[in-house]
Simulated scan of single mutants.
Amino acid sequence: MAVTERIIFQPYIWGKPKRGGPQLELGTPILCWSVEEGRRRIDKVAAGSTSMAGAILVSMEVDEDAGDYGEPKILERVGDVPEVED
């Protein structure tokens, strides 16, 4: 199989409060058909029309047959998300 690009929408939600207040938790990642679909999801989070704390849109090259997964590239981030290097 050839190398393909995967677009992943990674939501973050507020978890139950722990010491020091509520904690960010990973939501269920969503595999998108296209960058445009992922951006529509990001736009909904930015508009406040979801209960998500924030989200990251990631692109990654994958060769599933070989088990090779490239470095993720952050395309967009919105809201409350952990700090990560681009």
Results as ranks from 00 to 15, higher is better:
28 T>G: 09
35 V>T: 10
15 G>A: 04
33 W>Y: 14
42 I>A: 02
1 M>R: 08
82 P>V: 03
33 W>P: 06
13 I>K: 08
67 G>N: 03
39 R>M: 13
34 S>Y: 11
30 I>E: 10
23 Q>S: 09
66 A>K: 11
13 I>L: 10
15 G>E: 02
22 P>S: 12
12 Y>T: 00
60 M>Y: 00
11 P>T: 02
69 Y>L: 04
70 G>F: 03
31 L>V: 15
69 Y>P: 07
43 D>H: 12
42 I>E: 03
44 K>P: 02
23 Q>W: 12
44 K>A: 13
3 V>C: 06
68 D>T: 11
78 V>H: 08
51 S>R: 12
18 K>R: 14
7 I>S: 07
40 R>I: 07
70 G>I: 04
78 V>E: 08
31 L>Y: 15
79 G>T: 04
4 T>D: 11
77 R>T: 12
14 W>V: 00
5 E>F: 02
58 V>M: 11
26 L>W: 08
21 G>A: 03
37 E>A: 01
19 R>Y: 09
62 V>R: 01
39 R>E: 12
60 M>G: 02
41 R>K: 15
52 M>R: 06
75 L>V: 06
80 D>L: 11
62 V>A: 03
75 L>P: 05
3 V>D: 10
47 A>W: 09
60 M>Q: 10
8 I>D: 04
24 L>T: 05
48 G>M: 09
8 I>L: 06
32 C>N: 13
47 A>N: 12
22 P>D: 04
62 V>K: 03
71 E>Q: 15
85 E>S: 11
45 V>P: 00
84 V>C: 09
44 K>F: 04
4 T>R: 15
39 R>H: 10
30 I>S: 01
6 R>N: 14
25 E>W: 13
27 G>Q: 05
77 R>Q: 13
23 Q>G: 04
38 G>S: 13
7 I>T: 10
78 V>L: 10
53 A>K: 05
32 C>F: 07
78 V>I: 11
28 T>P: 08
45 V>K: 00
